[in-house]
Design a protein around this nucleic acid. Structure first.
Lengths: 334, 334
DNA sequence: GTGTGCTTGTGAATCGTTTTGTCCGGAGGT
DNA sequence: ACCTCCGGACAAAACGATTCACAAGCACAC
């Protein structure tokens, strides 16, 4: 059976193709009798509209692309849900892609979004290169940045102040009496890491009598967190840090798990703080102190920003910045 | 600036549209000089191919749709990664949708996948109604089921034996000396829950002197797990269960967290076991015993099955069943 | 009977690609 | 010198929908 088109439905109902099209798009242009005839023909043949064809004609896809760093990180997962929710209300669908800290993957997804003529794109970039995003926006597909501002001010953005977050983390550790601080980081290209470190460093510098060491890992997941934890536990107690800031909660959770397994006292010997405040932060062996980012609000705000640009593409680019909050739990409370 | 088409590139390069098309799809049909001219025209104009148009012509989308219950559940998140990985190797892109236990959402995504003429669909259904999936398959879009078999045998499927998993869970708890068992469940329509319960029940029946109570919650997340934990903690100690099986790890993690917070001894007073063995199962206050499903293998197998059907749509439907494994940790080890 | 206005339905052009068949010019064979 | 062959380029016909401008039908009034 060949795929059934609008033409066949028309023939079957004894009307023209235009009428069938109107049945779907301008129902009030049909008389009730006609509508009924079309409806039954559609049902009988099991007609399924061909979106690519419709899209070609109307040049609207009803889709928005969402590129995040890692969709299985609960922080991004929540953001995705918020975006989907907002999009559904506007009759839009969301396609999400996880770049897993790979520039090629990011390029790939962006190119795909543009080629499929998505109505708009929300991007969580992780490196410094916004060139592709600028090009796409210039060619007419609205782009909104998340978790990162555009220095050139061309693209709207929403995110949290990572530098402030890093500062909060260090201040808190120092106030708890920590003097030998570590920063366990993801890849250097990830801008967010750089900013958090900058704030962290600032508080360390201000304190004066505090040391800082940075450990870099290729990925921000629980596994590498454990790896970091093991490195800490393996050291002589006097060489260990007494305060550790994990690049995100995934890493911090891994660190805590490994330290506890190794019998290191958390927070007594080593205090640990994370970033994002994901739901699992509160359920670990030592409930994790974390810097909370409002993932849902960020997602919703990004979606709203994008919708505005869909309506009026030429409005100047806004920047929205949320402030992170310190959420204290047992992993740092001495 | 109007969007640039293949025609404009052709004009700019002084060739025909067909030649530009060949440049992309049959590069070896062009003489080297010609290829160079086209390439530079493409670059200069910033040409981006229009996929919907190409799709209309070729009727191949290069996309596969993946509908899961909850993409932020690490179990599904890992599965998604595996599918994406397999798809990328075949030059396909994946669009994932989270149905969040809503039949409407599931219908919506499936309809969308079909309307966009995706090359194939992988579906994790959560209720009994496979009618839509059957219809779609009959109209020519291959569908592979995950985590659920098709009783009519029309659709291929891959998943784990949930009944065996439930049985394992109960056997283990009973062996640890538990006699008052609970099953904390998600919604009843979720087939997986029913099967797990069936196996659980079976082991209880076999044991003879063991009681079973079932608690149902509207969603399978940490929040409702905490809710369940609170209900347990609020009871008189002699009315409490001494062994609890969480519908999945998310719920089980919530249960453990709440019990520990309330000062209930886990596993001494109440042993807790989960399902899925997600990465966070090992990092909780009492590392969680769980029934492991091989999420990556399942995703990869589903993708492979789909690819086979893309090549030869009429091969009989296979069914692949993985066996779950018991992973013992502190939450049940007395 | 003609003109006016309104509702409903239609024919045909169009969106941006791919693909088929054709055409052209030069190389090679006899 | 003639014929054949072939690589490389092109013109034009799809693909399946939407939409614009127009036509048919009808009611009503003059």
């Amino acid at each position: 059976m060949p795929p059934v088109t609008i033409q066949e439905v028309a023939r079957h109902a004894g009307v023209s193709a235009a009428t069938v099209s109107n049945f779907f798009n301008w129902p009030d242009r049909l008389s009730t009798g006609m509508a009924e005839r079309v409806r039954s023909a559609v049902d009988e043949l099991g007609f399924v509209p061909n979106m690519p064809a419709r899209q070609l004609r109307t040049s609207r896809s009803g889709m928005i692309g969402l590129s995040v760093i890692n969709a299985s990180n609960p922080f991004f997962a929540e953001m995705v849900v918020a975006v989907e929710h907002a999009a559904t209300e506007k009759n839009l669908s969301v396609m999400v892609g996880s770049t897993h800290e790979s520039p090629q993957q990011q390029r790939q997804y962006l190119r795909m979004f543009e080629q499929f003529r998505f109505d708009g794109i929300i991007l969580t970039p992780f490196d410094d290169n916004l060139q592709q995003a600028h090009e796409i926006a210039a060619r007419g597909t609205p782009v909104v940045l998340v978790d990162r501002t555009d220095d050139e001010g061309l693209l709207p953005s929403v995110g949290t102040d990572h530098e402030a977050g890093g500062y909060l983390a260090a201040r808190h550790l120092i106030e708890q009496g920590c003097r030998r601080l570590w920063f366990v980081s993801g890849p250097r290209q990830v801008q967010q890491m750089v900013r958090r470190l900058r704030g962290y460093q600032k508080a360390v510098d201000e304190a004066g009598n505090v040391s800082l060491e940075v450990l870099e890992f290729p990925d921000l997941d629980v596994g590498f967190g454990r790896e970091a934890g093991r490195q800490i536990a393996d050291r002589d107690p006097q060489d260990r840090p007494d305060g550790v800031f994990g690049g995100n909660d995934l890493q911090a959770i891994g660190i805590v798990a490994e330290l506890v397994d190794a019998g290191v006292d958390v927070p007594g010997e080593v205090a640990v703080i994370g970033y994002d405040d994901i739901v699992f932060a509160a359920t670990t062996a030592r409930p994790l102190t974390s810097i909370r980012q409002p993932s849902r609000e960020i997602g919703a705000a990004a979606a709203e920003m994008l919708f505005e640009r869909l309506l009026s593409p030429s409005t100047p680019a806004q920047q929205q910045l949320f402030q992170p909050e310190l959420q204290v739990r047992a992993s740092t409370r001495r």
